[in-house]
Design a protein around this nucleic acid. Structure first.
Lengths: 208, 208
DNA sequence: GAAAACATGTAACCGGTTACATGATTCT
DNA sequence: AGAATCATGTAACCGGTTACATGTTTTC
């Protein structure tokens, strides 16, 4: 249900085609709300039908025409209403914790691999997000700059601050995951003994 | 896709009816993987059809008969295979961060309410989970004890340790959310000034 | 006598995933 | 000439949500 608000958020800055939005999602909003093209196109049509957007065929694109959507007053209102409405919390459905709950039934090597993959995944995520935080701080984020151009000067600091704040949240979350996974690796060492039969010596030396 | 593994995990300890499982989900696995009864009943039928479970009508229940499912060898294998397979990470879809990204467009009071609700929600979660951790530690968790009865003595410590570990993960996660939300409240104070027009004085006094 | 718990479902719907389809254009 | 990019979709499927339906039995 959030896809449409992600789309509205982007379209508040600029009118765009479905393809533009799809590309946009790969680099900006997509970091917090992924959507494939096959979901974006029908959703745009639906939103147009509901009066949140207006589309017009412009002859710009490579192949004849493309459909450019711009946000309507109703669309702006819908977005503002969503922003001022508290989020409804979903009930827990956490595959990682479900898996961990029964780890005694897994092979220790598979459990270790799982936790290492968890660390790897979240480390990579943090790396990406920190890059973006850096771009936000240094004013080198093309997408944010585009948005700031359309923002009243007195609101620019806030716009920037909240973008940064959202990415900080992602980073904090992933850091918590990593520290939990390290704890899990130590637990595995305690319960099954330190890993045996490594291929090479000189693995991670004692570093807390 | 994880529902069936949650069901298999429970049925490894004991044969049960759909209703038993539904009740069970409210108190144990449901903490990491919620499922409503309307999803459990058809899934059990499906799993029976696929040979992971076998069901028999037993005349026990209040109203005539009930269908009791027990896990088959194929079911045990499917669960073991799942346990030894790394989890596939889903692409980001994070309503809280999506919301935070555009917080400059919300009314400051709504943004504050949002973050306070976030803190409230996760505080309550932590409270519940810590209670369970305490039950695990003190050996007063009926469900865990039931499982431990069926566990080989040399595996009991591990079983207990991983249950605790999973709940620790939930707690760590929520703690990270709370600290992020506090940071957000401080950010709101900085950007809009401290909250005005409170109804009562003597709100939260300076406590870090 | 009413409410809660036992017991099991169906049906409509929604959001999201994966795969397939098509065709032009621009870059290498 | 072939690959990548532009551009837009459809269709089948899956997992999950919400609401509705039904009837018994136990507890207050």
């Amino acid at each position: 249900m959030s896809l449409r608000y992600a789309l509205l958020a982007v379209l508040e800055v600029d009118a765009m085609s479905g393809y533009d939005l799809y590309k946009h999602f790969e680099s900006s909003v997509g970091h917090v709300w992924y959507a494939p093209d096959s979901q974006i196109y029908p959703e745009l049509r639906k939103m147009e039908h509901e009066g949140l957007l207006e589309g017009e065929d412009v002859p710009g694109g490579r192949s004849g025409t493309k459909r450019r959507y711009h946000i309507t007053e109703a669309g702006k209102e819908a977005f503002a209403a969503w922003m001022n409405t508290p989020i409804a919390y979903q009930r827990e459905r956490d595959p990682v914790r479900l898996h961990a709950t029964y780890m005694e039934t897994a092979e220790p090597s598979a459990a270790r691999a799982q936790l290492r993959a968890h660390i790897g995944h979240h480390s990579e995520q943090i790396r990406q997000w920190e890059e973006i935080v850096h771009q936000i701080d240094s004013g080198t984020s093309a997408i944010l700059n585009r948005r700031l151009e359309k923002t009243a000067p007195e609101d620019q600091e806030r716009t920037q601050a909240f973008k940064r704040y959202a990415y900080e949240g992602l980073i904090i979350r992933s850091e918590a995951e990593i520290s939990w996974a390290h704890r899990g690796l130590r637990l595995l060492d305690r319960l099954y003994g330190p890993e045996t039969g490594g291929m090479t010596q000189g693995g991670p030396s004692a570093a807390s």
